[in-house]
Design a binder for these strands. Sequence first.
DNA 1: TATAACTTTGACAAAAATAGTCAACACATA
DNA 2: TATGTGTTGACTATTTTTGTCAAAGTTATA
Lengths: 101, 101
Amino acid sequence: MSTVGLKLRELREKAGFSLRKAAVAIDIDVAILSKMERGERKFSKELVLKLADLYKTNPDKLVIDFLSEKVLYALEDEEFGLEALKVAEEQLKYKNQNENE
Amino acid sequence: MSTVGLKLRELREKAGFSLRKAAVAIDIDVAILSKMERGERKFSKELVLKLADLYKTNPDKLVIDFLSEKVLYALEDEEFGLEALKVAEEQLKYKNQNENE
DNA sequence: TATAACTTTGACAAAAATAGTCAACACATA
DNA sequence: TATGTGTTGACTATTTTTGTCAAAGTTATA
């Protein structure tokens, strides 16, 4: 279910990197990258960006997926998750409108 | 901007509780409640429920606000926050549909 | 088989974030 | 004064997240 992880794994393979090489390139332990790709550990935005760069891919969608996962994680399995998302959306829209304060 | 905090403060005042009394009733330190109401510290869902109960209020909206704040906090000031929320919403809808797996 | 490159796993430590405790302060009012 | 109100900050404790490492499992190929 970890879409960023799966996507980044696919991208890595397409780009011809082994886990080790990729990990070295972005300066983290292989174990961590392995776990992140499989959704066992969370990515950081920083690493998502580094990997997108390494794989020469546009990072935007990846970042969006990354954030979306973060959000869903924050909601766990809350009964009112959907309602909460809608409220959050409204508040964010409102905030973005008045970004000049 | 902390809407749960403000709402719970109003509810408390309407219900005629002093900070101290309310804090004692839900078994936390006054300082924490004071900070939570003012958004300086985050509520836990558990405390929101306890307070709703104490103030004899329906907890649902409060919980939704609580979760919404949690979500917005997770998004910080991300450029793609809104997009992320939409993706999260889709995934949540999808998940709720297939809750029989 | 053997060996090499790959990925996964788990135990552990380090660091960071969150939560809780406490005493003191400021203000108002009886 | 004395009592009740809310706020603040320094501190500790606890929990969560992150990083490190070695060993084990997997796969491909000579």
